[in-house]
């Protein structure tokens, strides 16, 4: 074949040797659509996970605050828990100017 006779435009339809697996194009559209478009289910899952995470954070903060409140004794309960000597010492401290006076004082 010489250059003058040969024209690649004449062999376009016969120039592709590539083939595809049987049924490839029949299923290609669906596969592309599934891969490309986000499914509604994924959106719901994302929202649920975000909501659960938010609830967990709020609950943790609430537990911390509540726990702190519970661990802070009220004054009446504290006084009731003191022994007589501890109570006397506490009252005496209010009257003393210095801690050393308290240590030297005859408080049992």
């Amino acid at each position: 074949m010489n250059r003058q006779e040969f024209n690649i435009d004449n062999i376009r339809d016969r120039s592709n040797p590539y083939t595809v697996p049987q049924g490839y194009f029949e299923h290609q559209e669906r596969r592309i659509l599934v891969a490309s478009m986000p499914r509604k289910g994924r959106k719901v899952v994302t929202l649920l996970v975000a909501a659960a995470a938010s609830i967990a954070v709020i609950a943790s903060v609430a537990v911390f605050l509540f726990g702190t409140y519970r661990n802070t004794p009220d004054l009446d309960s504290y006084i009731a828990s003191l022994s007589d000597s501890e109570l006397n010492a506490s009252i005496a401290l209010d009257d003393l100017d210095t801690y050393s006076e308290f240590m030297a004082s005859d408080v049992d």
Binding site: F25, I32, A35
Partner: peptide, 30 residues
């Protein structure tokens, strides 16, 4: 997708040669 999936596939395939590679690239395109 319906209109262009085949022409895009062949455009890609002739350049990457492998069917499997072409399939991956076409997915990414869409």
């Amino acid at each position: 997708v319906n209109r262009y999936r085949e022409p895009i596939y062949w455009f890609v395939r002739r350049q990457v040669v492998s069917h499997y590679d072409a399939d991956d690239v076409v997915q990414e395109v869409f």
